[in-house]
Nucleic acid binder design. Sequence first.
RNA 1: GGGCGAAUAGCGCAGUUGGUUCAGAGCAUCUGCCUUACAAGCAGAGGGUCGGGGGUUCGAAUCCCUCUUCGCCCACCA
Length: 917
Amino acid sequence: MDTKYSPKEIEAKWYKYWLDNKLFHSEPDGREPFTVVIPPPNVTGVLHMGHVLNETIQDVLVRRARQEGKNACWVPGTDHASIATEAKVIKRLKEQGINKQDLTREEFLKHAWAWTDEHGGIILKQLRTLGCSCDWDRTAFTMDEERSKAVIDVFCDLYRKGLIYRGLRMVNWDPERQTALSDEEVIYKDEHSHLFYLKYYVVEQDSVQPTGIEGEVIRKDERGYYALVATTRPETIMGDVAVFINPKDPANRWLSGKHVVVPKVGRVVPIMEDRYVEIGFGTGCLKVTPAHDVNDYALGQKFGLKTIDIFTPDAHVNMEPVEDELRPNLMHYHGMDREVCRKAIVADLQAEGLVERVEDYENKVGYSERTNVPIEPRLSLQWFIRMKHFADIALPPVMNDDIVFYPQKYKNTYRNWLENIKDWCISRQLWWGHRIPAYYIKGVLEEVGAENYPDELIFVAPSAEEALLLAQKHDANLSAADLVQDEGALDTWFSSWLWPISLFNGIEEPQNKEIQYYYPTADLVTGPDIIFFWVARMIMAGYEYMGKMPFRHVYFTGIVRDKLGRKMSKSLGNSPDPLDLIDRFGADGVRMGILLSAPAGNDILYDDSLCEQGRNFCNKIWNCFRLVKGWDVNDTLVTPKENILAVKWFNAVLQRAADEVADQLAKYRLSDALMTIYKLYTDEFSSWYLEMIKPAYLQPIDRATLDHTLYFFDALLRLLHPFMPFITEELWQNIAERRQGESIMTASVSNISVSTAHGEVADISGLMALVDHIKDVVTAVRNIRAQKNIAQKQAVELLVLGEQTFSEDALCMLSKLALLSSVTPANDKPEGAATFIVGTSEYSVPLGQFIDKGEERRKLEAELQHQQGFLRSVMAKLSNERFVQNAKPEIVELERKKRADAEARIATIEASLKALA
RNA sequence: GGGCGAAUAGCGCAGUUGGUUCAGAGCAUCUGCCUUACAAGCAGAGGGUCGGGGGUUCGAAUCCCUCUUCGCCCACCA
């Protein structure tokens, strides 16, 4: 066996074994279910560090549940990710010289499916490399037949319930992809921009009169009186229909009732008044373009203003809606991109003296989450869900912890969103996705246009045939050819929100055995960035369709960042390829690396050194195994006394650690749990226990000690298995004879210690204290060796001064660990001895001529000072009457004991100093 | 603008109702060791006024107030 663990073949071997033996597969049975549904990654995505974190956590939870005897079922799958995938397909088609516009819907979808089949599911393969124990037989896709049926049926159902409606609204428009987006898909970014102050000349120049109100600001230049309007988007002036002032604003009072000319455009628009306009911002004059701004639209609605939409769907200037008589002056802007037009129009305005000034300005601009282009607010006909009802059913269960969030702080975020919920725009102008099951009568649509199409003539049904039946109730003469289906597709999240239900076909058959057994799921593990997109909406759908929560616990992971704290991203190139890491450190090493510093909710700063630590830990375990398996056993050998003590002690340590791990896991403190196991292995097991029982070189070990040690090893592997599945399986299989198909995956983790290890221990804390004392003495002796340059192999004598006595087994253990030639009680210590104190006892190692009296004295004096300082602080407390009166009696008693101990130690040190003199 | 959270060792963190030498473990650093399981290792060591200030208390990293700094979420100020 090599001294290094080499993961590659071992990982492949056991993953295959698990699959061959169907150990990941779950079927409903009598056991308690433990269900986890994977947050479906994009079907065309590849594994990144965020996935590694997320999936490793899920795997730990699932594997642990399996070991606890639960029927664990982790369902994998992928998301069709409508907008992201459609973008990728369009890009690839472009590379092949094909434009989406030239394709029919059917042709495009053919390409999209081809792409999905080709690249889809790569990420699921990669999850196997990481060791994920998903039930692959259940692999699903948000757009497969079963899931699609659920989506369409839910749409129809919500429509019937009046929770879905169609309407002309101002929506977030992505001009790149040319589709509407939900509010959640818009990311606001701070931007350096400019505030342009434009002159809108007053039409009624002759009637301008100062009002005499204090604070009045009348603007006039050689061309006459004008209103000054501040805007960040001068290109939208072509859609201006009014200028608003606040009725209470003294500065602009004189403009009341006037009309102004939109600069360059030439349109005469009224000055109007509304309290929405903030006095003191800019000049207090607001230009209003209802077609291109959400607030302007609201004002337009309130006052019945026209909307002049001067952009095409891809945000190029369109002069069509502009009045004929104004157009000739503006035609050179026609077809310009909005950004280009901004520059052009500013230049023109400046040339004509219509810009009074330009200021630097910081503002927020909304960007499309997917295409990263600025959102254009756009009036369009879309489908929405009324969210009030869903907010009402989804808020209470989280607030009262029926569904528990880890960490809890996200409850606030969740509440905040639900309490200010807005309707959800679910339609997208995309082809890749679930097509909206709404049908229109072709003739009527052509006659009145989409915007004026009456709601009563919309027929929503799962299929064209069923829609026709509905339509025929309205007009018996209609035939299939008279109906036309809505062109839009649904938001991806409209299918994801059903995931925990649709995976078990719970929408179609709510009473089926699977949904009844697996639902609600146990834990959801996901990033806080999709708390609104996904988590909240799953809770809504869960209560709406199952009447129950979709999951009991939500574990929000942090964001994986690089060492410098930057978010990992493709463009920065700071994201390592997980497969490459697995290649270098092994899957177990990578899992440990990512888990170690990933407490819930905290961002993790990833660095390769974390995986190195994981790999090193694998080696440690590997070498423990080499040692233990290398021992020959001799059945006739009597178990040494120190081994009996060691076994009893480690048995207790193991149980304590196992309890701690269980507690930490119950609190979802995975990295703490892993650290507990790590320390148990490296510190207690390797550094102490194995050294305690290790036979001399080439000597055999006794049967009882070996058996107990193998048992401990087995238990340690079981504890570690959820975190590092591969190496633990490998060693577990080799530590004892196993049946075919048997696996550590299902080896129990309850009752980890052996209660019969050399009989019951009555006083566990006494046992622990004894071994702790021995460890302290050993460490002190090692220190003396180091300081005095005494060789590791050179045995030394130890004198015990005072009352401390050791039982025989303790003496044996002590002698073995510290390599002592003798341990003898003594009243006085010889000339030239190094001394140290453990607890209240003093020890001494005679050194003969090696001793440096001066140094020894300095050490003792330093210790004396420390003890005296400590005693003073204790005395201060005890002499404080209010402390003695108010503090709890046990606390006071403790202080008294501290005083006694300190006094004893001081006496000992003083005696030693005297002896040295 | 509103809300939430954080600040503890060089680094990323733990510290559960205030009380055990409570100021912690891990990594990194330093020192000594190729000691027959492991140098990807072993044995040791150093390192922090718990962001600043005030208060409550016999006692504060922990509770309260305040200031500073950082992060996140939400929001229609052109």
